[in-house]
Design a protein around this nucleic acid. Sequence first.
DNA 1: TAAGATTTGTGCGTATGTATT
DNA 2: TAATACATACGCACAAATCTT
Lengths: 91, 91
Amino acid sequence: MSTLYDMSPTIDYDAPTPPYQQIAAEIIRDIESGKLAVDRPIPSESTLIQRWGVARDTARRAVRHLRELGFVYTVPQRGTYVRDRTGSETE
Amino acid sequence: MSTLYDMSPTIDYDAPTPPYQQIAAEIIRDIESGKLAVDRPIPSESTLIQRWGVARDTARRAVRHLRELGFVYTVPQRGTYVRDRTGSETE
DNA sequence: TAAGATTTGTGCGTATGTATT
DNA sequence: TAATACATACGCACAAATCTT
């Protein structure tokens, strides 16, 4: 037990950026590093909640932020996936 | 219909404890009184939903609470059962 | 073998109340 | 006042395993 996510990042509540942005930034790193591939799901809300120890509200803010930045797209009742960002930016 | 559970308890939304804890407390009483025996299933989520008139989220919170307190264990796709609490507490 | 019901697991959308900054 | 965060609650939909018919 406890091997997979021992390296999970932690929220820095003293940082200038709010928690939801720290979580989003971490996911962006995983997208740009290829750990999260196009059309593959990003961690679920409950996963983010557990891994970061934040409230659902904060996890949802992070996902919404990623969506607004164009990194992911959400399919209702299914999940949120990495968006293909090659080529045009306008969907 | 309506004879067996006319005496079913009701949620007090003005109480200091949240609904999910009130539901859990009632189940704990049933466990400790012997109405719910070891390795016997506690009411299913849908039963709790109907009997207490709450949302599934609330019913699940109650069950999760019982699990965290060590009163029950859940078998996926089967149900949640009363845990044997005699002897050691550690697993 | 197959269909249907049951039950838990999961994901998402939304809302209210409280607290902190 | 506003933004952020946490806790709680209600609703809907689909998946997967199990059990019944």
